[in-house]
Design a protein around this nucleic acid. Structure first.
Lengths: 107, 107
DNA sequence: GTCTACATGTAGGCTCTCTATATGTAGCCA
DNA sequence: TGGCTACATATAGAGAGCCTACATGTAGAC
């Protein structure tokens, strides 16, 4: 998976993974790996800054917890985050449609 | 269309538009606009550097022509460019599949 | 006591796309 | 003649985001 290809789509992935349950960073990385069949194995240097960016934007909220002696910062979707996710899903659909129509024009 | 979303996919678009006929930069911009139904209206500052980059990479070759008193640099796909296009198409398919499976998991 | 898994974080680099600007021709219209 | 629009190419610099590399620490297995 080329790094640039992901650009601009990571936010949607993160919001999507947090849609039904809050998760901490490490668990998010695992969830992305699972859902993608092992293809998406994103480095911490990508995930953690992105989560902070999304929180700063108001799409996520976080709180600290300690589980088994380890500190976790657990993120959950805010209302704005849910709206953003809906927008991202719709943007993804039209994006694939547009690129697809250029890449494989039907005529 | 968000600028970041395009990242890493522009090369595929350019190669695709040049697949069946050589074109010069200005005509490539028009072709992209047409094929995308007007959504993709890319600035010259995006297209021209990208074309040079693809030529430097060996995927395109160019030659100058003068038509109606105006100078054009016409680009065509090289053999390596055709191979690259095939790879990009396949990468696009798996990319959409992966992102799609994360965004809308079936379970 | 060492190794792996779990867990979070930052600094700096790299690359690509966009904005803004520059230059020039051809044709239309007033 | 002068101005406007379409045609045509090009570059400098900005901005943004993802990655690499590094730093730090706990828990449990062997």
């Amino acid at each position: 998976m080329n790094a640039d290809a992901l650009r601009g789509h990571l936010d949607a992935l993160l919001l999507s993974v947090l849609e039904h349950e809050p998760r901490h960073g490490y668990a998010i990385i695992e969830a992305l790996r699972d859902r993608s069949g092992g293809v998406l194995d994103l480095p911490t240097g990508t995930i953690y800054p992105a989560l902070r960016r999304l929180e700063r934007a108001g799409f996520l909220a976080s709180e600290w917890a300690t589980v088994g002696g380890r500190r976790r910062r657990t993120y959950r979707l805010t209302g704005a985050g849910r709206a953003e996710l809906a927008g991202e899903r719709s943007a993804w659909t039209s994006f694939t449609s547009v690129i697809g129509s250029v890449l494989n024009p039907s005529r």
